[in-house]
Write a protein that binds this DNA or RNA. Structure first.
Lengths: 118, 118, 118, 118
DNA sequence: GTGGTCTAGACCACG
DNA sequence: GTGGTCTAGACCACG
């Protein structure tokens, strides 16, 4: 799951991993995350790196930490991630339009993606 | 145009700038780009940094360089940029769906973007 | 090892040197290469020049770089170098034939090379 | 025939072109080459570039120039080109062996090339 | 400590 | 004049 060769910093990959667990429902609002040491062992990375990732997630209000208790998925986490994703979507759509795509073409692609899933 | 504070490397910002000029039609297929020294002066960065950006654009077949002559926008550049943008769009759409958006919601957003433009 | 007078750029000479170390078994698949600073000191060239060589080797999938860790010989490196060498061999053979050599003459030369080695 | 985008200098490409004409028999020992201006026009390059190429060919004894008469293919040109090609062949063979090819494999490739021609 | 990025400025080949 | 290469040396993020 962690790609040491990627130019994406490891701590960001850890952040992404946590976000993905939330998106996929493996982790739900209020759930306790694994401890820093445990997650570090699971992922094969340095505990300091996980600590850094958790701090970043905290700043983005994705998780909150209770000293002595552990870290927990924030309550509003799903809305937050959805909003984030929609903003990225809008940007991507605008850029595609600038590159010559038209709205109906983009709608067709959405349909295609929908059918792939089904 | 160049944000020295940004975490995005300057040479990538230069790449983006060139791509934007192509998207906006300020630069067309086959056109000659400013020389490295000239562009460096315009942007207030080091010529080496522009050289690095140009090499990156070359590797992505966005431009080609003729030593002693200058750098030129590639012929297939528009298709290339459009395809790039569509791939990013697809990824963004998938992620949004995973985050809980449904297709009709995304289509509505496309409409909204379209109306903003008009 | 580095010829500053040569028309071959220093960074290409560095690339060749690394390839030779791989061919000669001084460096094996997966091995860590010296860091850019260390190799620069050994060769008496600028670290930037080594960096440029490493990037070129990376693009050719001869090595891969893990930022913060170092650069490593790729796993498939031997096959890659052998194929490269065979393509060059074929081209050289074709050119020799065009220049008037015949196949049996070329075979004789191969024998001679073989005997020299023994 | 001339690739302006290549990193190979144009004057070297012109040299190669002349050598190829000799190899292919389009030009024979003692034949007069086209004049600088004519060849420049044919190839779409600057006359100065052709001049530079001719000077290089002269230094390599591939052609000789008689002021006021023109440039001519040298008499020993075929042997010269063949020897050049054989040296390159030997180097390529050695390198292939170092990369793990064995002599019989190289002989097989020679056969294959021979059959392709037939 | 490692590689990534960047600057300032030099010299060179090519055309 | 153009891009290619190279140096010397700086600062930064990452781990």
């Amino acid at each position: 799951m962690i790609d040491l060769q990627s130019r994406v910093p490891i701590y960001e990959q850890v952040c992404e991993g946590v976000k993905n667990m939330l998106l996929d429902g493996e982790l739900k609002a209020g759930d306790r995350l694994p401890g820093v040491r445990e997650m570090a062992k699971q992922l094969g990375v340095n505990p300091n790196t996980v600590t850094k990732a958790f701090r970043s997630l905290e700043q983005n209000k994705i998780i909150y930490t209770v000293p002595g208790k552990g870290s927990f998925a924030a309550d509003i986490v799903n809305d937050k991630l959805k909003n984030e994703a929609l903003l990225v979507f809008d940007e991507a759509a605008k850029k595609a339009v600038r590159a010559g795509a038209d709205i109906s073409e983009l709608k067709d692609r959405l349909e295609a993606l929908d059918n792939d899933r089904a």
